[in-house]
Design a protein around this nucleic acid. Structure first.
Length: 535
RNA sequence: GGCGGAGUAGCUCAGCCUGGUAGAGCAAGCGGCUCAUAAUCGCUGUGUCACGGGUUCAAAUCCCGUCUCCGCUACCA
């Protein structure tokens, strides 16, 4: 059985509703999954929600509901609708409160405990009595005046106490050398390079064992041998990548699923959760004797006005604010086209508007309108014979092939930006081709040679659009389905999703006689005034 | 404080490793075209390459220093 291409997003914390940062990761994962499906590979694309932990408990209490009700509502009313709106094609959606997950988390934990990878110890740290919780050393603030020399809780502005609690610890420290060896042998396992350097540097400093249970609250997976404690939420959350695909399943189909799916080919994450994925997670897998993920890719952040998005600064943008105005496909296109994937990108409404108009409406959309209008007008909406290709048509065919190869190579590197740049060469070339060949002039001449020439031009342009529909389908599924239909693809060649990338650029696949229809513009012109928004 | 990244055209950025007339896209201006969503195609300009030194025949590119911005510096997710 061949290995399934397995791509994941983080499971998102249901403390809050999704913003465009979550959408960025998820859209990238979706495009990657669709690209590999279009290659003809078996693909498994997983996303989901992380629902345990103190913050969810607190949010639920503040909202006057139980944590389970809180999570249920956010998942049903915020997260899943957002992914539906964005045409996210995940194959599964794991929630950490599902029994299939919690049961397997317990099994995993018990195995590590039995192997001596987990021991009972004492966690000591700064604790705020008012918050009733442990604080991170880094979030404390220096006291002034009366509290000079002391460190204060950032919420209550009062000194923290050193408090200790009995917890269970995972022997993370013993895996430092193995992790370093692994990354030396597999540099591709953490990308981009800057992220890998940070991880390696961090591990070199030495690792401490990790406290993986909590006893101060109970919203979590119970530690199987000690029900006074619940599992630390990250330890619980990371395991979703294996529990969702059948780790420790007894059913034969699920065992087979796990064997053919794990290890993950790509864990896509934001760079803020790099350490959990590139240090703790692989160490957990080493301890359990399971294979490590092939790649963790930490992408940059979408910044708004140069700052990380934040609710408190009112810079958090809900995806619906953008999709409602630009459409889901335009949003998917923009965030992958505007910024190299590994780097931070500065989101701006103005830039998105400019790209929408220049690249989608005037570029791709208008190109489709030109071809379909002329085919309807001059040939009654029927794809004519390709006739004798001249050098211009040959160049188009060669470009289509080269662009396909380049885009595929870029996608192999998770370079969505480069892939779109490559594909856009074909959009630009086709607009130039039509302008140079002037089919509207050729159409005015009645002689047979001119009419055959017109056929050839229209055919070549239609071929170009056929290739574009296939190459862009993973990025803009909705629009490309429309485009595919408008060049007669469905009847002539079958469903768009079934068009293999390897065949996409083979020139001349569109059969003579396919029905071309000029429909509504692919990307309608934006209204003059944009909706009021903080962006 | 330590480690790492960045500072190049109005905007977003490439170039820097492997020194040798400073580039792309967008925006702007001019021209062509009229099939198309007032769309498209061609042409044009623009720069103390953060600052100060140094190496060199020659530095955006190498070296030293300074300034500014950002990230990482472990158990919130």
């Amino acid at each position: 059985m061949s290995k399934t291409f397995y791509v994941t997003t983080p499971i998102y914390y249901v403390n809050d509703a999704p913003h465009i940062g979550h959408a960025y990761t998820t859209i990238a994962a979706d495009v990657l999954a669709r690209w590999h499906r279009q290659r003809g590979e078996s693909v498994w694309f997983l996303t989901g929600t992380d629902e345990h932990g103190q913050k969810v408990l607190r949010s639920a209490q503040a909202g006057g509901s139980s944590p389970q009700e809180w999570a249920d509502r956010l998942v049903a009313e915020a997260w899943q609708p957002t992914w539906r709106d964005l045409d996210i094609s995940n194959d599964d959606f794991i929630r950490t409160t599902e029994e299939r997950h919690t049961r397997r988390v317990q099994t995993f934990l018990q195995r590590l405990y039995d192997k001596g990878e987990i021991y009972e110890g004492v966690y000591e740290g700064p604790y705020c009595v008012a918050c009733e919780e442990f604080k991170l050393p880094g979030e404390l603030i220096e006291g002034e005046g009366r509290d000079a020399g002391q460190r204060l809780c950032p919420v209550h502005r009062r000194p923290v106490e050193q408090v200790s609690e009995t917890n269970y610890f995972f022997r993370l420290s013993k895996y430092a050398d193995q992790l370093l060896e692994h990354y030396a042998a597999h540099p591709e396992a953490v990308e981009p390079e800057s992220a890998r350097n940070e991880v390696v540097q961090f591990i070199r400093q030495g690792l401490q064992d990790l406290s993986i249970s909590r006893s101060s609250f109970d919203w979590g997976v119970k530690v199987p041998w000690d029900d006074r404690q619940v599992v630390y939420v990250w330890f619980d959350a990371l395991l979703n990548y294996i529990t969702a695909v059948g780790y420790d399943a007894s059913e034969p189909e699920l065992r087979e699923k796990f064997e053919s799916t794990w290890p993950a080919d790509v864990h896509l994450i934001g760079k803020d959760i790099l350490r959990f994925h590139a240090v703790i997670w692989p160490a957990m897998l080493m301890a359990a004797g399971l294979p490590l993920p092939r790649k963790v890719f930490a992408h940059g952040w979408l910044l708004v006005s140069g700052e990380k998005m934040s609710k408190t600064r009112l810079t958090g943008i809900a995806p619906a604010q953008l999709t409602g105005y630009f459409g889901s496909d335009a949003f998917r296109y923009y965030i992958l086209r505007a910024f190299p994937f590994g780097q931070d990108g500065s989101f701006s409404w103005e830039e998105m508007t400019a790209r929408y108009t220049a690249e989608l409406a005037n570029g791709l959309g208008n190109l489709a309108s030109r071809l379909t209008a002329m085919t309807e007008r001059y040939r009654g909406g029927v794809i004519p014979s390709p006739g004798e290709p001249t050098e211009a048509e040959q160049r188009l065919g060669e470009l289509a092939a080269r662009v396909t190869t380049n885009a595929d190579a870029a996608m192999e590197k998770l370079d969505f930006y480069g892939a779109l740049a490559a594909i856009w060469e074909l959009v630009v070339a086709l607009n130039g081709y039509l302008t140079e060949q002037q089919p509207w002039q050729v159409a005015k001449r009645d002689d047979a040679a001119s009419q055959q020439r017109l056929d050839a031009i229209l055919y070549a342009a239609a071929e170009g659009l056929r290739v574009l529909a296939i190459l862009l389908h993973p990025f803009m599924p909705r629009t490309c389905t429309t485009l595919w239909a408008s060049v007669g693809g469905p009847e002539a060649l079958g469903p768009l999703a079934a068009q293999p990338l390897a065949e996409a650029a083979r020139w001349g696949r569109l059969p003579v006689g396919a029905r071309v229809v000029k429909g509504e513009p692919l990307f309608p012109r934006l209204p003059d005034e944009s909706p009021a928004t903080g962006a």
